[in-house]
Design a protein around this nucleic acid. Structure first.
Lengths: 220, 220
DNA sequence: GCCTTTCGACTGACCGGTCAATCGCGCCCC
DNA sequence: GGGGCGCGATTGACCGGTCAGTCGAAAGGC
């Protein structure tokens, strides 16, 4: 955990092959964590999957925990950066939210195992890694909240819905869709992913009700 | 797991005290699971918390797993029943969804530890208990999907948003709010809970956008 | 009314297995 | 020939589940 920073700094020529091995172990860990779960798998499973000796895992990582930390942080930081960039662009809120939803869903489409691990083992693990990475998780919510808040200030989003609640609702919806795919409760596939992007943004921004129904319920 | 049914059937005078002990252990387990997590805690922690001997836990439950199974199923079945009843009532969709959101949020308000355990250790645990109880979890989504589907058939909800997606979005939003409270990322309190009920239904049914913004984006 | 038998509630030391992490040793590239 | 890379047997801690036995209250015999 503490030595991780210095390790990431290496870029010498000697380490080219070395870095490759490191990635090999990380990639294997993703598959194993996704298949068996972090707690249920053994470090030897990761070594076997990577095709390396048990001890080599400990040559590259200080602990089993550090492997998961690395996987999470690498991906999560990319997401935080993207959300920041998206927010800075001069595009409608709806497009910003769609860009965020797209990024997360594309991440899943591109590497389902990694996203499964991140969500199941970190983002929603209140008693283990969720606590460890609370600050990073919170930052994502904060960034989304800011986007919603700005839209409210501009009169584009209804002001009576708390921005923090809205951010949680938006992010929660996306994560739940991934969960549906992860659990096999929702059909996967490229068209499904594309549909999901539209539908989640449509739902959160526009609501499920027809405008007719809205008028009716407002009257009642 | 298998002996549980017969045990519940007993109602003799001797077993009155016995049932009390059983509940004592379950209540202690909720606190311990919530505090340390299912994997991180030891059975002896539960016994200590309950103020009983280690072995007694195994007198009442076949395994550590069975304790969690019991906790989950007892609560989840109440929820499934409630959703079924709500769906049968002759009230507007919005009220149905609000009733479901209320039930889940009230469950959290009444026993945060139990809901934390259910969500963190079962509902979102794709590699352990989530798989074990997949059928029960799926049933909840199915029931909500049916409610949404009916509203679409009646022309109250927009038909172009897949009912299953909508159900996942709705349920995911609620679970994410609970997650926010569990992680300490959202302020708790009775007024907060009440606000949350309104806001989640408002958001999902009505959407975040103002109608003005909607007209603008439809034009673009 | 008293003694004995019975049986379930209850106890906690112990066992067997598991697994993260270490260590000391070869190997091979620079 | 030296230092990182790679190896996997070993260690030691930990924990779920077992089990042999105690205790006390109810049932039953006299």
């Amino acid at each position: 955990m503490s030595t991780q920073g210095s390790r990431l700094g290496r870029t010498g020529s000697r380490s080219k092959n070395s870095e490759q091995k490191r990635r090999q172990i990380l990639a294997a860990a993703v598959r194993v964590f996704a298949r068996q779960g972090f707690h249920a798998c053994r470090v030897s499973d990761i070594a076997d999957e990577a095709g390396v000796a048990y001890g080599l895992v400990y040559h590259y990582f200080a602990s089993k925990d550090e492997i998961l930390d690395t996987l999470f942080l690498e991906r999560w930081n990319v997401m935080l950066e993207l959300i920041g960039e998206v927010d800075a662009e001069l595009i409608p809120v709806r497009d910003k939210l769609r860009a965020i939803a797209s990024f997360i869903i594309d991440s899943y489409a591109h590497d389902p195992d990694l996203m499964k691990v991140i969500i199941v083992e970190v983002t929603r693990a209140a008693n283990s890694f969720g606590q460890t990475h609370l600050a990073e998780i919170r930052e994502a919510y904060d960034l989304i909240e800011r986007i919603v808040g700005k839209a409210q200030a501009e009169g584009l989003f209804r002001p009576e819905i708390d921005a923090r609640f809205a951010a949680m609702t938006f992010y929660g919806s996306i994560e739940q869709l991934l969960t549906g795919w992860i659990f096999g409760l929702l059909p996967e596939g490229e068209e499904q992913f594309e549909r999901a992007k539209s539908l989640v943004v449509d739902t959160i921004c526009g609501g499920l009700q027809t405008r007719t129904a809205e008028r009716l319920s407002a009257r009642g």
